[in-house]
C-alpha cells in the first residue's frame, strides 16, 4: 500500500490547523484548529499502521483521541470561564501575564 496520498492529506490538514492557530483570534476557532492538527496526526498514524500491518499506530491514535477529549473538557471550561469574566473569546485580550 502506498501511504503517500494519505500523508499529503495529513500534511495539508496539519498546515491548515497550524495556520489557523497562528492567525485566528477566537479561542473556539483556535481550539478547533488544534483538534484539526491532532486529527492530521491521527490520520498519519493510522496510515502508517496500515502500511506496516500492525496495530501500534491505531493504538496511538486512540490515545490521541483520549487526550483530545480530555483537552476539550479542560479547554472548553477555561474558554467558558474566560468568556464569563471578560465577555470576549479573543485570545489577544488574555495577555495579562506578560512581563
Amino acid at each position: 500500500m502506498n501511504p503517500v496520498n494519505y500523508l499529503y492529506l495529513a500534511a495539508l490538514l496539519f498546515t491548515i490547523g497550524a495556520s489557523g492557530v497562528l492567525i485566528r483570534k477566537n479561542a473556539i476557532v483556535l481550539f478547533m484548529c488544534v483538534e484539526l492538527m491532532l486529527n492530521a496526526c491521527n490520520l498519519a498514524f493510522v496510515a502508517f499502521s496500515r502500511m506496516h500491518g500492525n496495530l501500534d499506530g491505531q493504538i496511538i491514535a486512540f490515545f490521541t483521541m483520549v487526550v483530545a477529549a480530555a483537552e476539550v473538557v479542560v479547554g472548553l471550561a477555561i474558554i467558558v470561564s474566560l468568556f464569563r469574566t471578560r465577555h470576549s473569546a479573543s485570545v489577544d485580550d488574555a495577555s495579562l501575564m506578560k512581563l
Binding site: 497550524a18 492557530v21 497562528l22 485570545v91 489577544d92 488574555a94 495577555s95 501575564m97 512581563l99
Partner: peptide, 17 residues
Amino acid sequence: LRKLQNGYARSYAVSMF
C-alpha cells in the same frame, strides 16, 4: 529581550513552530 514576551499566545506558538 523582554519585548519578545508580548503575552500573545500566537507569537509563542509561532516561535514554537
